[in-house]
Write a protein that binds this DNA or RNA. Sequence first.
RNA 1: GCGCGCUUAGCUCAGUGGUAGAGCAUCAAGUUUACACCUUGAGGGCCGGGGGUUCGAUCCCCUCAGCGCGCACCA
Length: 713
Amino acid sequence: MELPKNYEPKDAEGPIYKKWQESGYFNPDNLPGDRKEVFSIVLPPPNVTGTLHMGHAAMIAVEDILVRYHRMRGKRTLWLPGTDHAAIATQSKVEKEISKKEGKSRHDFGRKEFLKRVEQFASESHDTIVNQMKRLGASMDWSREAFTLDQKRTTATYTAFKRMYDAGLIYRGNRIVNWDPKGQTTISDDEIVYEEREATLCTFRYSKEFPIPVATTRPETKVGDTAVAVHPDDARYQQYIGKTYEIADFAGVPLTIKVVADSSVEKDFGTGALGVTPAHAAIDWEIAQKHNLPSKQVINEFAKMNEAAGAMLVSKKAAEARAVVTEWLRANGLLIKEEKIKQNIATAERTGGIVEPLPKLQWFVAVNKPYQAPSGETTLKEMMLRAVQDRKIAITPDRFNNVYFNWINSLRDWCISRQIWYGHRVPVWYKGEEIFVGTEAPQGDGWAQDEDTLDTWFSSGLWTFSTLGWPEATSDLKMYHPTSVLETGYDILFFWVARMILMSGFLLNDVPFKQVYLHGLVRDDKGRKMSKSLGNTIDPLEMADKYGADATRLSLIIGAAAGNDIKLSEDRVRGYKNFANKIWNISRFVLMNFDGFSPDAMGEVTGEADKAALADFEKAKVETTAQIEEFKFYQAAEGMYHYVWHTFADKVIEEAKPRLADPAVRASAQAMLWTILTGSLKVLHPFMPFVTEEIWSKLPDWKGKQLLIVEKW
RNA sequence: GCGCGCUUAGCUCAGUGGUAGAGCAUCAAGUUUACACCUUGAGGGCCGGGGGUUCGAUCCCCUCAGCGCGCACCA
């Protein structure tokens, strides 16, 4: 039996995937043999915002290695796929498209019609993404596929909300939140991106009589000031602490300013005195709470000055108002100095809008509030800390333990309500003063459901168990949870990994996974982030078509240690295509020399050289196995690459050529080559599933031959 | 401000307390029982600088520098 001279991945890969799917082996229920040990992974669900990029391909490559390896090790192996509705990301994408193409906003459609458009888009993205994952060879159990916004996951989300509400861990509160004027919604602390910009720090007095000068970069908010805070130990201002000053006219409005002492004030910044604007800065809000100060909102949801800001400023944009107030200060001799400083400005990750802190009535998850867990009283924060501290969850690479702890320690209550339309509607109904929280609308007339939707991470936090049927006590949940490994990019450690630990810890009193493996970000060959605007993206599908899915996957594995970014270039991918072809030709050579050989009647390996070659292979195999177990995929792949090319092909095969020609030792050499070839195909399979399966199918049949995907490691 | 990572061949990166490694790139030669998507060979390095521990340091410790990242602050 002879193979064609070259391996053509494009022709081979489609039919092989089909063969795998038809075998049913992606579903653990169908796997052959008695499988007691379980291995489970849930796919980090890609957002239905378009198409897969190289980062997704890297994720799929790593997870498929794990899954195929453990399946071949004889475990009951589940890789559960799904997609994420990604609330704000998807909605803003569709809004942008509609605005660009039709010049309309979501309000021109209304909630119902607009949602139809988003769902249409999401459904198309979903189909694209699923096909792309299949193209890359992902051995996922499609029969269990889930979507964060489907019926079952919605039930899970509502159930989670209700249980947390009943436990007092979800509350509605009027607090200062991050308001995105562009997206017209609140966002969580984690959805903020800081950008460094130049700002003007103005030092001024509220009036000629007011004793303490104050510094600010936002003069326009000062019409909303109700206090000045100084450090309690600041000798300069001791005499004023506790006094209240009436300012008759500050940029057209009267102010009442109380001087308070608060240790959060930095003595050395500006004048050492902070003008307290409770409604428009998070710290000021906290100070105001502590000192019982009134709050006066002067900026509205559109980042424009409101009525309370006075006639001089009303309806002006914040930036315009800033100039007006500065001019007014100058004209009235109250401006002491102006200096340029560098400032980190908070912007919304999705829309780029400048975040305006505003007081709003929102839903929050209380992370510091004690609750009764089965193991005793704790808080969500403490529980999240414990999970990793007590090594119930191990993070690879382990330096991210510290990153995780830092984040938990500075964690504040999580704002989970969003003023967007796409997502899980907050499961709360109001009727006058009455509030109903439940998984379904209450009986009776006059109830109105909360208009807001939930932060997308609220539902994706449930992902490891909502996908397994929770809140029902399904056999899947019992069998596959906690999952074995959570594999994802380090950039969503906080967004997602931490939230999963929170949700699983509270709702199941268990960890969501035992092991976290964090991969790096895929960058271009110069180390820049891949982005459409830079034009430096490499499309995984295009690479798969040109060089094969195997080569694409290998290029994302080799040279990529856990948590390190990957620099990718097309050359790299090309190099691994050559490797696939090498494996092909090794097999071709072996098959060409197999006259008179039958796997079922294979003789002993008797020659010394043959025995030595087998021992070398054994060694390589053992090493590779250990490396996979230790999550050193790059080393495992590179090691096998090197063994197969430079030991098996260059030495073992070359040196076996004369023996194959000698009838006396031919049988031994054949048995040796057969053993190493089949063994290598197995070890390579998790890394290069297509070419290995294709070659496997071309090998002569033997008793008990199966698809390579379920062969024993 | 707090913390983390990186610095090794032209490029991308592994690696180990005991004579420096791979892939790609470069150069030279080559048509051999599979493979030119190949083979054989060659060149190329004060392992970022300085100090320390050690018989011995690229590796461990200290320090400096450059690059990158995260978190917090930013009145």
